[in-house]
Amino acid sequence: MKFTVLVNEGPYTHQASDTAFHFTKAALEKGHHVLRVFFYHDGVLNATALSVPPRDDRDVVKRWSTLAQQYQLDLVACIAAAERRGILDSEDAKRHGLEMDNLAPRFRISGLGQLVEAAIQADRVVVFGD
């Protein structure tokens, strides 16, 4: 079955990103196809490369990147939500005249249309938020 997952909250403050991760991982392990994990609202903060959690805690950002690498998972952060909250890929940074970018590995930034398109193609859409 084809799933699309929407994550509306950032890491650590809310449990939503943790639950979304465990759900996505379980779906992939069961052989389902996850078309896309889309990050919206504060969910785009899951895509920061600058998160440095203490060693005795989980690394939420890296965990998403690793899962994406393992399953060729498409992780997409909404561009409008991301720019507003200071998450930029190198192209966005250049366009806005900024010298640094901070998008974590295996994430990409794109428009909300990517969520709608994935929702149209999926058999199920599951939302995680607060």
């Binding site: 079955m1 799933f3 509306n8 759900f23 379980a26 779906a27 069961k30 389902h32 058999d123 199920r124 859409v125 599951v126 939302v127 995680f128 938020g129 607060d130």
Partner: peptide
């Protein structure tokens, strides 16, 4: 959780 999602439609989150 994954099985419940597969067995039901639509799925809605009450946030």
């Amino acid at each position: 959780f994954v099985d419940l999602v597969a067995q039901h439609s639509p799925v809605m989150a009450w946030l």
